[in-house]
Write a protein that binds this DNA or RNA. Sequence first.
DNA 1: TGTTCATGCAACCTTTTGGTTACATATTAA
DNA 2: TTAATATGTAACCAAAAGGTTGCATGAACA
Lengths: 107, 107
Amino acid sequence: MISEQRHDVFQAIADPTRREMLKILADKELSVTMISNHFPISRTAVSKHLKILAETNLVRSEKVGKEKRYQLQPEGLLEVKHWLSFYEQFWDNKISKLKHLVENESE
Amino acid sequence: MISEQRHDVFQAIADPTRREMLKILADKELSVTMISNHFPISRTAVSKHLKILAETNLVRSEKVGKEKRYQLQPEGLLEVKHWLSFYEQFWDNKISKLKHLVENESE
DNA sequence: TGTTCATGCAACCTTTTGGTTACATATTAA
DNA sequence: TTAATATGTAACCAAAAGGTTGCATGAACA
């Protein structure tokens, strides 16, 4: 099965509108229409953003009657956290820099 | 003074090529041509990527003779770390969730 | 002084992105 | 059953992104 992953999480969070969506979903789950009310763009545009967020596992949806409720799936952001952790050695302090060296001395 | 910021750090790290550039610059500073040798794209394209990374303060450059040396400026990533920290409450554990509530109870 | 090397910039091209409107479908309410 | 509500999908569009080639400029070397 060839699953073509069109987007990755870094692309997903690159758009300010999508970051705002994550923020409001952090508070509570919402339907597409409810989310749309927070933005000056069409419901269709919102729907596309949500599709990208779902593709990259940053949100998940659940059908409730005629509504589709979206909720934050924050584990998707762990990939970003992990990526960032590599760079932390450069800003934290000398100790963590040494720690990094020790951790990787088997390579 | 109207400084138009065309890109932000989230956009900058959205591109896989630029993320790769940060990684190789983490090891040591390099000139434009040296960086180009790591990628299957033209030097001009590399230069454009570096411009974006510089705009968003993820790298800085220094002229040395006829070369321009680029080096990682990892503090630029602190913005991402800060943004991420908001979502950590959702994956860490209940304690940190409570901690977040207490920290924000004055609002 | 030429010549070579490193880089920047302008012009151009193609694909992707973020948006629109119009229409189709599914569920609930009257 | 009919009407209203919630969402999805298709077709389209403009602007941005990522790439190219060609030429200009500045520094170093023979």
